[in-house]
């Protein structure tokens, strides 16, 4: 039986995490179909058709998928899922929100946030904030799975899948989107960035955060992140947060500035290829995971790094 990937998209483009999810699906060794549920989403469907390895794109285009609300999308997926052995979505805030509804309606377990595939029914997933890795086997007829995007490469381009329109499911009318405040930024998004510059409580204030870290991020073409402490202190909005309960990232280079290295922060970034820690406290736990540590005054070192890099 084929495998269904629920795409994350904005009706125009695919979100990067969809490509990593397709790679996970391809490892299962069957045809991979992608579902685009949206409104006016033909462009996103075309983008999905070009993803290497995808054999079919299903498009449900209806006004009530505009906001891609969990209730309506889950209802649609539930109707499709019986024809699939696996249903996968990215473990992004949208996927985590929607997919458990599908699993419950199908009366199957969900396997959350997988980082490895051992067999078609056996998966590896982190537990206890990544302090342990559990290998679990599902006995259910349909495997419903969210995929940690940093654990799988992004699928490339070069596919030419058929695009098939499918009928929308009923509008349940349970929920209405009132509004979205999306942070506008010219920088790469956290989940897909090659380099991340991240600030913690040590930067001292929201003003300092921007004054100190933005020039460095601009110079490196990096995304900006933050520790939970910096978000809780109001330096930056919640969507900057890297950690167990924020975003899980694994860039080529992660520069932690004024971040002490709480377990829950490490859970979100310890799979980065190279970690640099800049902190005035030589005992900070972040140095235990950093490849390169620099002890000293952030307000001298970070501008100097921006200059020299």
């Amino acid at each position: 039986m084929p495998i269904l990937v629920i795409a994350e998209h904005d009706n125009q483009n695919l979100k990067a995490a969809t490509l990593n999810t397709v790679t996970a699906a391809l490892k299962l060794g069957a045809d991979v179909h992608v579902l685009i549920a949206g409104a006016g989403c033909a462009a996103a469907a075309q983008a999905a058709a070009k993803v290497a390895g995808v054999t079919k794109v299903l498009v449900a285009d209806a006004a009530h998928y505009e906001a891609q609300g969990a209730e309506n999308v889950a209802e649609l997926v539930k109707g499709l899922a019986r024809d699939y052995s696996h249903v996968l979505a990215p473990a992004s805030s949208a996927g985590k929100n929607m997919l458990p509804r599908v699993a419950a309606q199908l009366d199957v377990a969900q396997i959350s946030d997988i980082v490895g595939i051992e067999a078609a029914d056996t998966f590896v997933r982190p537990i206890y904030a990544g302090n342990a890795l559990a290998t679990v086997r599902s006995a259910d007829p349909i495997k419903v799975i969210t995929v940690r995007s940093t654990a799988f490469e992004a699928a490339g381009e070069g596919g030419a899948a058929a695009v098939e329109a499918i009928p929308a499911a009923a509008d349940l009318g349970l929920s209405a989107l009132v509004g979205r405040e999306i942070t506008k930024s010219a920088r790469p998004e956290l989940g897909a960035a090659r380099i991340i510059v991240s600030g913690g409580r040590g930067v001292g204030s929201g003003e300092n955060y921007h004054a100190l870290l933005e020039p460095l991020a601009d110079k490196l073409g990096a995304a900006l992140g933050a520790s939970r402490a910096a978000v809780d202190a109001g330096y930056v909005p919640n969507d900057y947060q890297v950690g167990q309960t924020g975003k899980i990232v694994a860039p080529q280079l992660y520069i932690a500035v004024g971040i002490s290295g709480a377990i829950q922060h490490l859970a979100g970034m310890k799979d980065s290829k190279v970690i640099v820690a800049i902190n005035k406290d030589p005992e900070a736990p972040i140095f235990q995971v950093a490849d390169y540590g620099l002890v000293g005054d952030l307000f001298e070192l970070v501008p100097a790094l921006a200059q020299a890099a």
């Binding site: 949208a94 349970l174 009132v178 405040e181 999306i182 909005p237 919640n238 969507d239």
Partner: peptide
């Protein structure tokens, strides 16, 4: 709290 920012829902 969603990826990229915030959204407000009105639910029954």
């Amino acid at each position: 709290e969603i990826d990229g920012g915030l959204e407000t829902l009105s639910i029954q």
